[in-house]
């Protein structure tokens, strides 16, 4: 148990949040992707977080976070009638990705706030450690 563990914990949070930001960037980039079948159309991806109970922390009271995996959203791809589109199927339909741009933007704000709070925790802890080290000098 020491202040240094705060760095480990905050680092797990920062890497998890950066995975989340990556998936958001991917979703936003592919928001306008069009496909001929629902299967080949891009689906939005989201990371699944879980508490990292079995990692390097010896004391299991204060634990970090880890990304268990990335899941694709099960929301149906939007179907649009557009017979003139080069990607249209036999019936003249195209399939648009199921990315909800507004949802992704709010998700992005939440991720960046969480990232910031980890940075802040690290900074404060660094100051405390530096002051402790210079004790009595």
């Amino acid at each position: 148990m020491s202040l240094f563990q705060v760095f480990d914990i905050s680092a797990t949070a920062m890497s998890a949040q950066s995975v989340r930001l990556n998936t958001i960037a991917s979703n936003l980039a592919n928001a306008e992707v069009v496909g001929s079948t629902p299967q080949e159309t891009y689906r939005s991806r989201h990371p699944v977080f879980s508490t990292a109970f079995d990692t390097f922390m010896t004391d299991q009271s204060a634990v970090g976070v880890r990304v268990d995996g990335i899941v694709e959203s099960g929301v149906e791809a939007r179907r649009e009638y557009s017979p003139g589109h080069p990607m249209a199927d036999d019936e003249g339909f195209i399939y648009l990705s199921n990315v909800n741009t507004v949802e992704e933007m709010t998700n992005m704000i939440s991720a960046s706030r969480s990232y910031q709070s980890s940075v802040e925790a690290m900074n404060t802890t660094k100051q405390l450690i530096m002051r402790t080290l210079s004790l009595g000098s």
């Binding site: 148990m1 204060a62 969480s114």
Partner: peptide
Amino acid sequence: VLSIRAQRLELISANLANADTPGY
């Protein structure tokens, strides 16, 4: 006091780290 404060800091930073973890 310092060591307790350090432990508490650790717990709170774990809470902040898990702010988006389902079920935490």
